[in-house]
Write a protein that binds this DNA or RNA. Structure first.
Lengths: 187, 187
DNA sequence: AGTAAGTTTTATCAATTGTAAAAAACATGA
DNA sequence: TCATGTTTTTTACAATTGATAAAACTTACT
């Protein structure tokens, strides 16, 4: 709970009053491994902070699943398009471990943004970070081979490797599980 | 010039006073085909609106070039990471046609954001749209084959096809020019 | 230990994409 | 029109990745 405020404070310095109001709006939730924080076609009403655990944000077609992002402890995230426009989501969020989150609802955040400029600034900053992360991902997908993307993932998220199934990792990298196994074998 | 304001107004309704201030800050520039609006390692100091023409935002390594986005007339854009943090850019912007832009500098935008909440809101909205676009692109790269991505590009940007070289298009799709030619031939 | 369920690896073959170089088509200016 | 430079297509071959299914390995539970 305190950490949510810490992270928000890093995005944009909060006034004491804003921090108090924000603190007051925060809620907690625990879900088990395999549970969903958001289902397809639901409106994403929450901005999440992970206290503990691990989630994946993904979408799927009839045959396959595609993973946009993993979020582990201390990550602050939401499904941007559904959240900002309060429209049904094409993405889902599932807990990959027993997970505890702190969250603020869209409604509450709206109110706080109106009231406290520093909170609005923090959220705006979060959006710009999201864009930058997405651009980085696209760059890697354009420039790197599957092997390079795998190694890059290890460099950036080495610690997560033990916690993510290789099936999920392959769905994140955009290759089949067979291909990922081949890549891992060639070492 | 008027169009820049129109687009900004669509992002967030501007007060008369904000609109006047914004109008006052806008500047124009024309560049020839092949000219750069931004070079690598430069700080991107401008938020651009294309009055007329076409640009590509890209990066390159020793051998190849990779295109993040094309922007044609009435597009409002910048290089997000360099612009928001005012740090050197890894991306470059080049005009693919003789191009006229209207722009506002980061400095002026900063000032206006402080002064007019509606302008800050508009820029924030622009960031959220950028994130959403990037997520859409990643989704397509994960889910679709090169052939599907090409067809998808035609559906979304059919009119641009005549204006973009196939070399550039292949660098956008993340395939070689040879592959793209093959895809186009199979019809 | 033994079983069942889930995960990861391996193997085979097919399809896609990359590489490199040549040929063809197109555009431009002398 | 010719000549030149650029862009696009084509080709043959190599490398990578996909699809599928079976085998090996883990894990959790009884």
């Amino acid at each position: 709970m305190a950490d949510f405020l810490t992270i928000f404070n890093k995005l944009s310095e909060l006034t004491k009053s804003a921090e108090d109001d924000l603190h007051y709006c925060l809620q907690n939730k625990s879900v088990n491994k395999g549970d969903y924080l958001l289902r397809r076609r639901e409106v994403c009403k929450k901005l999440y902070f992970i206290e503990e655990g691990l989630t994946k944000t993904f979408f799927s077609n009839e045959e396959k699943e595609f993973i946009m992002q993993f979020f582990a402890e201390h990550a602050l995230f939401t499904v941007v398009d559904s959240f900002v426009s309060q429209t049904p989501s094409t993405y889902e969020i599932m807990a990959l471990e027993n997970t505890t989150v702190t969250y603020i609802t869209w409604k509450d955040l709206q109110i706080l943004c109106k009231k406290h400029h520093c909170i609005e600034a923090a959220f705006s900053k979060l959006l710009s970070i999201a864009t930058i992360n997405m651009m980085k991902r696209i760059s890697e997908m354009l420039e790197e081979s599957a092997t390079e993307r795998y190694n890059h993932f290890l460099d950036d998220n080495g610690k997560l490797l033990q916690r993510i199934s290789l099936g999920d990792l392959s769905n994140y990298l955009g290759i089949t599980q067979g291909s990922l196994s081949r890549i891992r074998a060639n070492k």
